[in-house]
């Protein structure tokens, strides 16, 4: 464990909790893409199948349970509890255009052709594009609530920190995993546009609004 991975995990945790609190406190999931949240729940489900068979550390297990629990709770709140506030008209990104190619790629490019490994690879590839429906929804609505931008910033920052973690681990441990690194680069690059808007607007007290 190094400081970049730890802060990355904490940033990820902050993002997930922030979103949960936003929906719970405002009792509304306006501006939130349910499709992205479903894909994140799928990412955690396919990645943490070894939760009970492969114990690594209390930290690792606790974080996995929290991620799984929060992501399912978020999906539940969007599609059931606060369904009335779900903005389906703007959450129109075709998720199947992501899930199917990602599923195919996981079959073709992986470290080992076993079910658990393919599912893990699927979760890595899916996570790298899972935010697209959310970013697409913001371009459709032309704006985002400030709390939602903080959620997105923390979420984007987490994988950027993981990239540094992988540089660290390559340098000090000689470890590197090309699948995770390439997917992590794609994932972080997708946030660049948002990072620019977040830093130039939100951090200057402005509301994040796109030229409609």
């Amino acid at each position: 464990m190094n400081v970049f991975r730890l802060t990355g995990d904490l940033s990820h945790l902050v993002a997930i909790i922030l979103l949960l609190l936003k929906i719970w406190k405002t009792r509304s999931c306006a501006g939130i893409s349910g499709k992205s949240q479903v894909m994140f729940a799928l990412v955690f489900t396919t990645r943490y199948l070894d939760l009970f068979t492969n114990f690594i550390s209390p930290y690792n297990s606790v974080m996995k349970v929290i991620y799984l629990g929060c992501s399912y709770a978020t999906v539940y709140m969007i599609y059931m509890k606060f369904k009335a506030s779900y903005d389906g008209n703007h959450d129109t990104f075709r998720a199947e255009f992501l899930i199917i190619p990602v599923g195919g790629l996981a079959f073709l490019v992986n470290h080992e052709f076993t079910p658990l490994e393919i599912l893990w690879t699927f979760s890595i590839y899916l996570e790298s594009v899972a935010i697209l429906p959310q970013l697409f929804m913001i371009t459709k609505t032309g704006e985002a609530e400030t709390i939602t931008t903080h959620y997105l910033f923390a979420l984007g920052l987490y994988r950027a920190l993981y990239l540094i973690n992988w540089i660290w681990r390559y340098y000090f441990e000689g470890f590197f995993d090309l699948i995770a690194i390439v997917a992590g680069c794609v994932q972080t690059i997708l946030y660049c546009d948002f990072f620019y808007l977040y830093i130039t607007k939100v951090l200057h007290g402005k509301k994040l609004s796109l030229p409609a």
Binding site: I56, K64, H111, W120, D177, L178, A180
Partner: peptide, 10 residues
Amino acid sequence: KNGPKAKDEL
């Protein structure tokens, strides 16, 4: 097997 990918990451 730890393999190329470390299972210890989230």
